[in-house]
């Protein structure tokens, strides 16, 4: 288990460049199958609208997984993520067209801890709304 990022080369306040993660309906269908969460608000527009939603929305856990990818891609080894938590603050609405939605994730090294661990604060936005808040990962660096 070894992150490719070295603790001694990271500074508090260091920014991790933003990345875009597109979301289309097919991604939500795949995530429903893989996760076992078949709530129709994540794939059935007719149902989503009957419960007051503007359209189909992404699973919160799908959005959390995208921000997780951002961290594991930075760390190199996904096993280096030792703690990861988020609050779901807004919906990711996914229209039934060729573009879908885009989740943009960025991060900053918020704190250097003992034992070569760092806290990465994450920002995830979709259409100018923050879709995650209090999103933090603790990463074991080498």
């Amino acid at each position: 288990m070894a992150a490719t990022v070295k603790y001694d080369e990271v500074e508090t306040g260091q920014e991790i460049p933003a990345a875009d993660y597109p979301v289309r309906r097919a991604n939500l269908v795949m995530y429903a199958g893989a996760s076992g969460d078949f709530n129709p608000i994540h794939w059935n527009e007719r149902f989503a609208k009957t419960v007051g939603l503007p359209d189909v929305i992404a699973h919160g856990m799908f959005t959390m997984a995208q921000a997780g990818r951002f961290v594991t891609d930075w760390a190199g080894d996904p096993g280096a993520v030792v703690d990861y938590g988020v609050r779901f603050s807004s919906m990711v609405v996914v229209p039934d067209d060729d573009n879908g939605a885009v989740i943009t994730v960025s991060g900053v090294v918020e704190e250097k801890l003992e034992d070569k661990r760092v806290v990465v604060a994450l920002t995830a936005k979709c259409a100018d709304s923050r879709v995650l808040s209090k999103a933090r990962a603790v990463v074991q660096l080498s």
Binding site: M1, A2, Y21, N27, M30, Y31, G33, A34, S35, F62, A65, Q66, G68, R69, T72, D73, D77, P78, G79
Partner: peptide
């Protein structure tokens, strides 16, 4: 299946040798 559904092709999820190389 789960890694594919979240769009993540990190070899440590997909390839045992890559995972073992990472310890």
């Amino acid at each position: 299946e789960f890694a594919t559904a979240i769009g993540d092709n990190n070899p440590i999820y997909h390839d045992r040798e890559a995972a073992q190389a990472a310890g």
